[in-house]
């Protein structure tokens, strides 16, 4: 579904990604792991068009998306969450989730200003879908709250609800459980499991190895901007290069 070929990104001559190649298969959860500074977030930003890759190609459903503007990529059906939460604190929880349906709401300003019956119907449908999404994430009772006052874990779930409400083709999750306690992590893990079993394709960036090893179909390991390993969780667990990247030289722990 998504293919990265030889993707490189330099920041002023400093290579953040070099020749990264891997696929994300339809209906699978692919995990992207690696030590801090390995280039994981840079890679997500390249896929979503926040950054333009210096070289290489990124194809989504056989369509080249490298260098396309972010909103175009989003409208193709790629949704994401952010490592450092980007919810809208002044909007209500419901409105936050509704922003996830922006591209389905139509962008005619004139239509919106006249608020014709057709638009009202559409608004009502979108609202229902947003409420369903809130239900899935146990947030329905907080729908009218300003999102800014929610607890951190709830904010993360708002972001997940917003990213999934539009039924995206591909879901990019940038550290969805970072900063959560064990209980909240388990809850988000449960959500991801449910998303996977309902056929969502996901690319998950995560430091929580237990979660990654449990959920992932495939694991991609980045280190210093290079893709050093690719395989099933079991293969990755036994891969000496991965151990080295995470724990230092193998002799040291042998």
């Amino acid at each position: 579904m998504l293919r990265l070929e030889q993707v490189s990104k330099n920041f002023g001559g400093l290579p953040a990604l070099s020749n990264v190649t891997f696929p994300v298969a339809q209906g699978q959860l692919t995990a992207l792991i690696g030590p801090n500074g390995a280039g994981k977030s840079t890679l997500i930003n390249c896929i979503t068009g926040v950054l333009d890759p210096s070289q290489g190609s990124i194809t989504f459903q056989n369509r080249e998306i490298a260098g396309q503007p972010t909103h175009i990529i989003s409208r193709l059906g790629i949704a994401r969450t952010f490592q450092n939460l980007k919810i809208f604190p002044r909007l209500t929880v419901l409105d936050n989730v509704l922003t996830g349906l922006t591209s389905e709401g139509g962008d005619s300003m004139l239509m919106a200003m006249l608020r014709l019956p057709a638009l009202r119907h559409r608004e009502r449908r979108l609202r229902l879908r947003a409420m369903e999404a809130l239900d899935r994430f146990q947030l329905a009772d907080k729908a009218t709250w300003p999102a800014g006052i929610l607890a951190y874990g709830d904010k993360k779930r708002v972001e997940l609800a917003r990213a999934t409400v539009g039924n995206p083709q591909l879901l990019l999750l940038d550290e969805p459980v970072a900063g959560l306690n064990a209980e909240e992590t388990a809850a988000v893990g449960e959500q991801l499991r449910r998303l996977r079993s309902s056929g969502h394709t996901m690319l998950l960036v995560e430091h929580d190895m237990d979660l990654v090893m449990e959920l992932a179909d495939r694991v991609v390991v980045l280190d210093s901007g290079k893709c050093i390993a690719l395989g099933s969780p079991d293969e990755i667990r036994r891969n000496p290069l991965v151990l080295e990247a995470y724990l230092g030289r193998t002799e040291a722990i042998a």
């Binding site: 909103h71 989003s74 909007l91 509704l98 709401g105 979108l126």
Partner: peptide
Amino acid sequence: RSSVGRGLAALAGDEVAAAALGVD
């Protein structure tokens, strides 16, 4: 009170997030 308006509110909140939600 429309999705255009919510796109605007997203834009005021965070431009990158708004673009990622499909706002041009």
